[in-house]
């Protein structure tokens, strides 16, 4: 069940000539989960469809499963499991019928088919829904049926297109945990598309951040977050404060004071920091006024004005100051950091 995937120079141009994906190289290790992250229209779904065989790469592109060239194989002969954003459950079949459909196509004898369907339903903890019509299911149940249907055929690769997007926040969180556990325990090679950075960082062994038809960076969630290679990656993943100021004598001077800036060339500069790299500190060297405070439960997100040209976002777990109060900020070592090139 563990198949490595390689894409070589896979581009995709629509019939009308618009380029959805620049020629792209990408490797996914056997058993690895790769998240394709990017804004809508960045080509992430196109890339997934090329892997699935639902679209053909432009001439010169090549898709390899376990070293075997499958570029010419249509989706029905690639042995992939797919989960669609809309779930795409067959409305004329009940839950068991949906889950067993791929097995029926593969002419698995009815007895064995029923056993495997039961096993899948048990794995997804939806045994009691076996004979339910799909239009009687909740979003979370549909999602589980869609996963069970995709996994029932023991696919070489699992492909998920925005699998959690259609669910409400709490359920999304819960299914994200379940999905992570499932992918780990099955050790199946999986690629999933999402525009939700939290989902990508939580579920992906590696994350590929895409923009305008190309991959900007592939790396572990930690690398993507802490060592973004482009300005786009830095700003798309997580919250990023952009500080405009001037570096002189090892200090980064801002309207509300200064922050240490070692190793940055003197002169005007735009430096960056994450909200959690700043903290409220009475002895801090940067002052500003609280413009807004958002209580998030475990922490409070503060918007600080006057410290820099643009408002700065800071997060604190301690008792939060009220809007209007003047606060002082201090930075973690290594912060603020120079931005990667655009």
């Amino acid at each position: 069940m563990t198949t490595p995937i390689r894409l070589q120079a896979c581009g995709f141009t629509h019939a009308d000539g618009t380029c959805a994906l620049q020629p792209t190289d990408l490797s996914v290790e056997a058993g690895e989960t790769l998240a394709l992250l990017g804004p809508s229209g960045c080509g992430k779904t196109t890339l997934l469809r090329l892997v699935a065989g639902l679209a053909r790469p432009d001439p010169g592109g090549c898709v390899l499963f376990d070293g075997r060239d499958v570029t010419d194989l249509p989706v029905e002969r690639r042995n992939v499991g797919m989960v669609f954003q809309s779930y795409a459950l067959f409305p004329n079949l009940d839950v068991a019928g949906n889950v067993g459909y791929g097995l029926k196509i593969r002419r698995v004898p009815p007895g064995e088919r029923a056993a495997r369907v039961a096993r899948m339903l048990a794995m997804m903890r939806i045994q009691e829904l076996a004979h339910r019509r799909v239009d009687q299911l909740s979003g979370g149940q549909k999602q589980r049926v869609a996963l069970a249907r995709a996994l029932a055929v023991e696919p070489a690769v699992l492909l998920l297109d925005e699998p959690l997007t259609a669910l409400d926040a709490k359920l999304r969180e819960q299914l994200r945990v379940e999905l992570a556990g499932l992918l780990r325990s099955l050790r199946i090679t999986a690629i999933f598309v999402t525009h939700d950075q939290g989902e990508a960082l939580a579920l992906g062994d590696r994350v590929a951040v895409m923009r305008a038809g190309r991959i900007e960076q592939v790396g572990s969630p930690h690398e993507i977050y802490h060592r973004p290679r482009t300005r786009f990656v830095a700003s798309f993943v997580g919250i990023l404060n952009l500080l405009e100021g001037e570096v002189a004598d090892g200090l980064f001077r801002l309207p509300g004071g200064s922050l240490p800036a070692s190793g940055v060339a003197p002169g005007p500069a735009v430096l960056a920091c994450r909200p959690e790299q700043l903290r409220l500190d009475p002895s801090g060297t940067l002052a500003g006024r609280i413009a807004a405070a958002f209580f998030l439960g475990d922490r409070t997100r503060l918007v600080v004005e006057g410290a820099a040209a643009q408002p700065i976002v800071v997060e604190t777990v301690a008792a939060a100051p009220r809007p209007g109060e003047v606060v002082r900020l201090a930075a973690e070592p290594g912060c603020p950091w120079p931005l990667p090139p655009a």
Partner: peptide, 24 residues
């Protein structure tokens, strides 16, 4: 997506017509 779903599960062209398009 229903047709693509059926195809991803291994259904060929006629099978998709029979199992997805005609019921739809």
């Amino acid at each position: 997506a229903l047709e693509e779903g059926a195809r991803s599960l291994g259904a060929g062209r006629w099978r998709v017509v029979r199992d997805v398009v005609l019921p739809g």
